[in-house]
């Protein structure tokens, strides 16, 4: 039985907590903007004055990067992975296991709260200004906007499930550094967050298409700039739904194994 009101409390609490630590939250914008500057400059230099490359105009490409950086901000605003891993390491997680709620869901709903605060008070105002003053393309119809938001939301869920599954490996391994790094690498490259899939060499594009990461950034970004359009959007959303289901099952599987195997260090 899913008790929405219980989990909604976590969302509200996380929102309020972000409001208390608002300067810590806003300072993340600095990092987000530096990375935007970096990728914006890289793509400007790669296009080197060309109007279009690979069938995509420069304006669309720049929009792709800006939207991608916006979504990176959204995806990075939740509880950081190391915080959860630290709880496992110190044994604090056992306190949460004793309580009458589902831990992965509790963190997801808490993330909704902190992400909402970050979007409303930092990302949205800043990126709105950017869209006003820069030559970027906006989706033409409200349907595209709606589909983009749906797609970005599903992408958020896919990322949460996979990231959490990797994070929970700290139940089994004391040091997860190497494995987590592989995940972050896959997430930044194969998700198309910095280089869109259409610029990949053929074999790598094929590989990326069969992996869940493209659902996190590539699909919503491409919907936004109209690279994916019409019936293709529905197909892409279908792919995303498949991956969100698959990664949710993965998370459930890892979580079940992990909570069976709570080895609290030092008693």
């Amino acid at each position: 039985m899913f008790r929405f009101r219980l989990y909604w409390t976590f969302t509200k609490k996380a929102f309020l907590r972000s409001a208390v630590y608002r300067f810590d939250v806003w300072s993340r914008l600095g990092s987000n903007l530096i990375f935007l500057l970096m990728w914006g400059s890289i793509w400007t230099a790669l296009y080197a004055g060309r109007e279009e490359a690979g069938g995509v105009s420069f304006e669309s490409m720049l929009t792709y990067i800006v939207v991608s950086q916006f979504l990176t901000g959204v995806n990075g605003a939740g509880t950081p992975l190391w915080e959860i891993q630290e709880k496992v390491r110190t044994g604090d997680i056992s306190l949460e296991l004793m309580r009458p709620f589902d831990v992965p869901l509790r963190y997801l709903f808490a993330d909704f709260g902190s992400v909402a605060f970050y979007i409303l008070t930092a990302l949205l105002p800043l990126y709105t200004v950017m869209f006003i003053f820069m030559d970027l393309t906006l989706p033409s119809g409200w349907e595209t906007w709606a589909l983009f938001i749906v797609s970005a939301f599903i992408g958020f869920l896919i990322r949460y499930c996979i990231e959490m599954s990797f994070g929970l490996l700290s139940f089994f391994l004391v040091e997860t550094g190497g494995i987590v790094d592989v995940f972050y690498f896959a997430m930044s490259l194969l998700s198309g967050s910095v280089i869109p899939l259409w610029f990949f060499p053929g074999w790598l594009e094929t590989m990326a298409i069969y992996l869940p990461f493209q659902g996190i950034y590539y699909i919503p970004n491409a919907i936004f700039i109209g690279k994916i359009s019409g019936a293709e959007i529905l197909l892409s959303l279908g792919v995303q739904l498949f991956w969100v289901a698959a990664s949710y099952l993965l998370l459930r599987f890892v979580w079940n194994r992990a909570s069976q195997k709570v080895v609290v260090q030092g008693g």
């Binding site: 997860t176 550094g177 190497g178 494995i179 987590v180 790094d181 592989v182 690498f185």
Partner: peptide, 12 residues
């Protein structure tokens, strides 16, 4: 842990 961290660094 030592080997894992080195592997992780080289990977990234």
């Amino acid at each position: 842990a030592f080997v894992m961290r080195i592997v992780g660094l080289i990977t990234s």
